[in-house]
Amino acid sequence: MPPKLTLGPILFHWDADTKRDFYARIAEESPIDTVYLGEVVCSKRAPFFERYLPDIVERLERGGKTAVFSTLSEVMLPRERKMTTELCAQADRMIEVNNAAGLGAVYGRPHRIGPMMNVYNERTMAHLAARGARHIALPPELPRTVAAEMAGNARQIGVALEVQVFGRIPLALSARCFHARAHGRSKDECQFVCENDPDGLTLTTLGGDRMLAINGIQTLSYGYLNLAAEIEDMLALGIGHFRLSPHRTDMIAVATIFADRLAGRSDGPTAMQALGALGIGPFVNGFWHGLAGHLYRDQRVGTGLA
């Protein structure tokens, strides 16, 4: 099967019109194969976009894309439990489960396992596969050495593996909303202030380094993960699905650059140069190389650069 380019769920609180326009362009103009839809960070945000979903799914499918529905990463409150079990109960939809709360409802039916599900080893993978998991997104912190082990096992049991290759890296979750806290509010009275920061709110250390980006209850890397130079290696390992995490930058351009890499139409330096021209970054790839995640290791010189 040729490698697939996927678009992860929108992690940030974009307004409904922006999301609708974004997905319309993805449907019509992008070389993306699979689109993950749904709110995975904050259950309070979910209602805004719900009524647009059927139309978006139709447009994506008309554009030849596969739509997958992602569940919430944190499930605690009654409305979060309801959202998760109702979504997972839709037997005609492919579901990506991001919290163990969803596993019971997809039991025995083909489904996908999201990157928050902590599949770090072959035994966990085999256990989930025996209960219907057909596709697993690896945790972003997994180094190449571990991914290589996983890929060998995944092939044997017919599980597809996905790795995030672009975008800020989800690093932590909390029950507390850090966006609300930054504005001196609590989660219940947040007034959706996270909408101000469509790529996250930057946290700078007292040493002056931009280190993290907060997004509601989620904490992300400030650096943008970029594995454009590692694509051949990942393909050789047997990774079949490559996830772009949506940002406000030109995602059609990002998708085209990665699609060219997957099809062998461009090389690493060309892709890195084109991504650099988008004015985002800094780029990081440390996790894949077994280093601190905030580093970028240049394949050509083989040194770690901060």
Partner: peptide, 14 residues
């Protein structure tokens, strides 16, 4: 942070 879902230390120091 939700335990078991935090890679902050790994991001900072590997």
């Amino acid at each position: 942070m939700v335990e078991g879902r935090c890679s902050l230390t790994n991001y900072a120091v590997g």
